[in-house]
Simulated assay, not measured.
Amino acid sequence: MRRRLLAVILATVVFLGATTSVGAANTRAIEQLDLSLDDCIRLAEENNNNIKVASIGIEKAKMAEKQFDKQYDEYDGAKKMPRQVIETGDLIYDSIIGMLTPSMTTYDTLLSMETGKIMSELGVGLATDGYEHVVRQIKFAVEASYYGALQARDNVDIHRRSLERTEEQLKLSELEFKVGSVAKRDVLDSEVQVARAKAEYNQALRERDIAYMKLKEIIGLELDTPINLISDFEFEPNEEEIDLEKLIKKALKDRIEIRQAEYNFKVAEKGLEIAKAAYAPNVNIYKEAEYDYNEAKLGLEDTKTAIEADVREAYLKMQGALESISVLEKSVKLARESVRLAKLQYKAGFIRSIDALAAENALKQVEVQKSAVIYGYNLAKAQFYNAIGGKE
Rank of each mutant, 00 (worst) to 15 (best):
G23Q: 07
D39Y: 04
S371P: 07
G180R: 06
Y385L: 07
S55P: 00
T225S: 13
K80S: 12
N386V: 11
V187W: 07
T105F: 14
K266D: 01
A29I: 13
E262R: 08
L91K: 08
T20A: 14
K139M: 03
F265W: 09
V182F: 01
A25K: 10
K80G: 08
K370S: 06
K216Y: 12
R208M: 05
K370C: 01
A195E: 04
I354C: 01
T19Y: 05
E167I: 07
R165I: 14
D38M: 06
D292R: 13
D186S: 05
K391A: 04
K343E: 11
E269D: 11
N50L: 05
K391C: 00
I56V: 13
E46Q: 14
L272F: 02
K184L: 11
K184F: 06
T19V: 12
R259N: 06
L334M: 03
A127T: 00
E257V: 07
S190P: 00
T105H: 10
N49R: 14
R136Y: 06
T19F: 13
D129N: 15
V267R: 04
P82Q: 09
K66I: 05
A144T: 11
Y279G: 08
A29N: 11
L322T: 10
Y346A: 01
I388P: 04
I218F: 03
I118H: 02
T225E: 06
S145R: 13
S145A: 14
E59H: 08
D38I: 10
K250E: 09
A342G: 05
M104I: 15
T305Y: 13
A268D: 01
G23N: 03
E323Y: 02
A387M: 08
A372C: 00
K117T: 03
N48G: 01
K343Y: 04
